[in-house]
Design a protein around this nucleic acid. Sequence first.
RNA 1: CGGGGUGUAGCUCAGCCUGGUAGAGCGCUGCGUUUGGGACGCAGAUGCCGGAGGUUCAAAUCCUCUCACCCCGACCA
Length: 568
Amino acid sequence: MRLSQYPINTAKETPAEAEVLSHQLMLRAGLIRRVAAGLYSWLPIGLRTLRKAEAIIREEMNRAGALELLMPVVQPGELWQESGRWTAYGPELLRFKDRHERDFVAGPTHEEVITDIVRRDIKSYRQLPVNFYQVQTKFRDEIRPRYGVMRAREFIMKDAYSFHTDEASLQQGYRAMHDAYIRIFTRMGLDFRAVRADSGPIGGDVSQEFHVLAASGEDAIAFSDEDGYAANLEAAAALAPKDPRPAPREAMSEVTTPGARTIEELSRMLRVEPSRCVKTLLVDGSDQDVVAFVLRGDHELNAVKAQRLPGVALPLRMAGAERIARATGAETGFIGPVGLRCRIYADHSALALADFVCGANRKDMHLTGVNWERDVAGVTAADIRNVREGDPSPSGRGHLKIARGIEVGHIFQLGRKYSEPLKAAVLDESGKEVTLLMGCYGIGVTRVVAAAIEQNHDERGIIWPEPLAPFQVVLVPLNLQKSARVREVADRLYNELTAQGVEVLYDDRDARPGVKFADAELLGIPHRLVVADRGLDAGRLEYRHRRDSESTEFPADEAVEFIKSRMR
RNA sequence: CGGGGUGUAGCUCAGCCUGGUAGAGCGCUGCGUUUGGGACGCAGAUGCCGGAGGUUCAAAUCCUCUCACCCCGACCA
């Protein structure tokens, strides 16, 4: 593409509306334009990247045996009433009526439609398993769209749905998608993790999320530095310490600690490490009572784990001052497990302490030299804390690292959640009717593009992973308007590379060098080729990868081979 | 939906408190000089000051209502 014929409009200044870097860069580089809250147009250069992401996804879905189809954005309300989601989905589901006053929705997802297709067209177990997928625009009327294309109301999603007669086949189909997703994100050149998602009350290991690692990610994930273990922070198990608890050495004694309400203040006042202190949090119990959680001073309560325990009120709620006073006779900051008469859960690592410090259940008083069993009884051991960087991995290999991630994919075993109400069933070998098992598998295509930028940029702009770059090569001629020699070499290079299938962005604008360099870097094109009189005097051109800090020179007549060797 | 904030040129923003002829930088157009890191000079174009109502001799500025957008909290690819 000749830039002189494409009206790019890059901006030096950061648009005020954009908060995250990928959004800022996408606007500045002219990849997208906002139309309304959560609605974006994709301009030609941005669309090229979007199409590349889609192409990789299609290739890998097809390779995995999935069949592409296309379902409408607008769906009849009836189907949603049938599945029960007409009422269950909430205001995020955009509903409207047509001129005949019939209910319709703008599809946020397509389980209903695909299940409807399958129940009409699939009649026999012999036609199964199948996996249908599409790349389609979705609409979710988010309360608060933000971060540009990362959390838009309208977005493009690849969604796939598999159907099976038995559990083993579902497992197999799920596995195939898992492997396809690994190939997809690997091919896109992204640093990502497949993460165990909290499976919630349903239970079972049936859901995995795919996260692109990026400092600005919305989710915290924990992963092993030695094997493939990765989990949402909420879902990552904290192992009990291996070493046995040391024997008590100190006697328990009371100390005055005026005003020391936090572990930090306490630790400073008594000159004791926070990891030798214990904190006691009280939450509402499912009856009138409270439930106590005891954690090491340097650990944090994990609400998801805590609210799964018997006796805890749902959702998890910290106890109010009144209940605390009734249960302990003290106030927050001075609570401890000694003599506490309520259900007590202690985290494994708190239980591994000996001679620790805790609240005395009296204002401005703490206890030192406290020991389990000797001084505190009736405690239930549990995993109730967030894992921390450096904790041993629950997989048994390596230690945990914590990173932030952007969720770009989710695979899920749905079971009969939709096939049951929508009555999707076939006859099996024995002529018996079986309700189909279903899996669904999503990738946020538009979000992947934003996530790629979030992960790959510097102060000058985007640094595209090559498989997603809108162009592979940016050709920058200097003094093009005056130097016939530069024009001739640059034109020839553009034609030759283009003829060989290389995607070249040819900056033939009448602009100063600084402008061209700055735009090339903002746009993030991986390979830059500079044609200038200075180099041509010696018969040389200049090459620089977007990640390089220095340019390299090479003979001008080997340009095509040179650039192709760099692109491998 | 609750809380906070912003609407002025294509973009980033000043002006508003204390009412009196609409501003800057970037971008855009023309001409000239310049040409290896977002150049310089000269000349220009561009505004329903988000909208409606009110107060006033006079409103971008004060008041009321309204709309849009942004930010902080519960969902999700």
